[in-house]
Amino acid sequence: MTFLSDISNTFGRFLRSEIRTPQIVIFSLAQPLFWLLLFGQLFEKMVNVPGISTSNYISFLAPGVMVMIVLYSSTYGGMSIVDDISSGLLDKFLVTPANRTAFVIGSLLASLVSLSAQILVVFGAASLMGLEMETGIAGVFLTMFFVGLLSFGIAGLSKALALATKNAQPVVIIGSFVTMPLIFLSGALMPLETAPDWIQTAAKFNPIEYTVKAVRYLVIGNGSLNDFIPSILVLTAFAVFGVAIATLAFRKATN
């Protein structure tokens, strides 16, 4: 019981601080719209490229934009912890009997709320631009599930990095260093069918690719259960890894 109350206390604090900053809310919701419009226009003619299994590029693009949102929002998920370390707040929390893992999980859950809002914005805007969600509302929920797992993994790694270095700078540098390659080593914006072999091989190790694949099956509605199994396995493992390494770093940083 106290474990759940520690999670909800942490969750509440992070959620409040996000909602209390309207600039962040506005920009984080405007960003997916902007990407959708920009990439939608830029790559409109791509429907003719082999590998795009839909006649509507927006249906192909929307899942890609979703994973980009996860990447951009979760990569910097470790920064809030750096603030709490330097202000001494984290030490004060750690002196209380609250559970340490709850600090990690609570803050990850809070970032899931704003992420979900962003995903809904993409679904809404993409529908207006012609996206048809073949798997309906159930597909939207399943999308949240896959995107959530990816976010746990990435934000967990980001927090671990922040805790290990106790510094926001490496998070920013490494975060921005890996974001673009991770997107282009996946089928987020371009189908992988026409990409060189080595990129296709690299994509097999990229959790982004597993998320894009799963979400795309859900949007276009052409996947069978077997198609989802690798994504479920890889992303669950990735999420568990993220939380575990963040928790481990948390324990280490506080000794």
Binding site: R13, S17, S87, L89
Partner: peptide
């Protein structure tokens, strides 16, 4: 150091710590 959540009120800070003490 400061040891407080600067983006919240004083009352909220006290409640936050209280809840961590259950």
């Amino acid at each position: 150091q400061v040891g407080l959540d600067l983006k919240s009120t004083g009352r909220y800070n006290l409640q936050l710590f209280g809840r961590y003490y259950h």
